[in-house]
Design a protein around this nucleic acid. Sequence first.
DNA 1: GGTTATATGGACACAGCGTACACAGCGGTG
DNA 2: CACCGCTGTGTACGCTGTGTCCATATAACC
Lengths: 202, 202
Amino acid sequence: MAELTPETQTPVRRGRGRRPADQVRAEILTAAGELLLAEGMAGFTIEKVAAHAGASRMTIYKWWPSKGALALDGYFTVVAPTLAFADTADIVADLTNQLVAFVHLVRDTTAGRVISQLIGQAQTDPELAAAYRERYSGPRRALAVETLTRAIARGQLRADIDPESVVDQLWGACYHRLLIADLPLTEDFARTLVDNLIRGLR
Amino acid sequence: MAELTPETQTPVRRGRGRRPADQVRAEILTAAGELLLAEGMAGFTIEKVAAHAGASRMTIYKWWPSKGALALDGYFTVVAPTLAFADTADIVADLTNQLVAFVHLVRDTTAGRVISQLIGQAQTDPELAAAYRERYSGPRRALAVETLTRAIARGQLRADIDPESVVDQLWGACYHRLLIADLPLTEDFARTLVDNLIRGLR
DNA sequence: GGTTATATGGACACAGCGTACACAGCGGTG
DNA sequence: CACCGCTGTGTACGCTGTGTCCATATAACC
């Protein structure tokens, strides 16, 4: 009789030898994401991730080139990308909604702290910086630029504006308050940003 | 006749006992600033600062609460604050000049790398974050807000705008490109930021 | 079933942090 | 001039985390 082990489905994970690679990778990623949300980048060490995942550090070193890469992967594993960008005919409403949603994500969840610490770590970790640009900020920027470009095509915005700079003045302003934090990042602030740009200052 | 000691001014520094406290502090700060500019926050360790200053680590631990505090103090020691803010009657020219100067400071000197790494470190170092806000970003923001307020008083800008948010949309946008760096931080970009806000998008 | 790939525990050297202790010398006090 | 407190110096220790190396065990593949 084969070993009839009723709950062998939950792997014991205490064997010495090889476990399924995909399973181990998944467990490491989950552990990384949870540790990131729980302790932030300060307490995020490869040793803790390995311990939390019940894996050995060697495995992590084999699959991820740097701590930053692991953190970013873990972040995406736990926090779904959520890159949706509602596009109605009203550019002002679209921008405002997106900015307000971003403000809430950053303020009301732990995602804000994680994002800011990922960006912080990226300042001294070129690999993480490249990965962050390529996989996070790049796609988000592209979506916003696309929305602005469509609004220009519809004649809602001046044709000669530079959409990229506008993105920096909306999202960049929010990141400024997130990273420097000398003033609070509020919903009103987000609305004011759109208003300033649309109406002009004089 | 004061002591005319031609080169006794450079102390031998190789004794075992005590040296003047102020002198040691000054040498540590200079060493910290130089190390910061040379290697950035990545290679900035208390051990290296101590070695470079010819001091012992104990002394540094006694006077500075954290690595971040030492780095910030060292930065201010080497890079003069330079908080001047020219104020002519032309608000557009003033803002543009200030932003362009900031862009050049950040792009053409090592200060940009140091600033971004200080901000990065501040994301996981609350003491450094507080010191940075209090001693660097706070005063700079206040100067910019003051300039905008005067322009409003002169009737050059709408009276109902929020100067703080405008600061975020000008300098924050630059910091965004400095910290994320998915697009270059150019002089043209700085001019476009002012133009976008002044003229409005439609 | 045999082979290969790979996860595991354990060990190692190394760097940096933070602390402790004894000693040395400067600056003041008497 | 003698003394003593403050403070820098050298040295040592324990701790955490990194990055790398093994030998071994076992899943996955042929």
